[in-house]
Amino acid sequence: MDLSMLKEYLPFLIPLVILQFALSITALIHVLRHPHYRFGNKVMWVLVVMFIHFVGPILYFALGKGED
């Protein structure tokens, strides 16, 4: 990909990157502050939430998050 193409897609990339970051960080804070999960452990969820883009945090909130 050359620079002009990157420039063309910047309006897409910026919001997607922001969304990904917002999601990851919200999930990360939740993982660290609520150490009870339906399954798995803290290390696993931190990795999932940080490194699996989009799907990781959603998986955590939908399936991994323990009862409050």
């Binding site: 897409f12 919001p15 997607l16 969304l19 917002a22 999601l23 919200t26 939740h30 989009f54 959603i58 909130f61 939908a62 998050k65």
Partner: peptide, 15 residues
């Protein structure tokens, strides 16, 4: 966080 998940999923699709 259910509202958040819904909005984010649909926003990602939207983009």
């Amino acid at each position: 966080y259910k509202l958040l998940i819904m909005l984010v999923v649909f926003a990602i699709f939207g983009i």
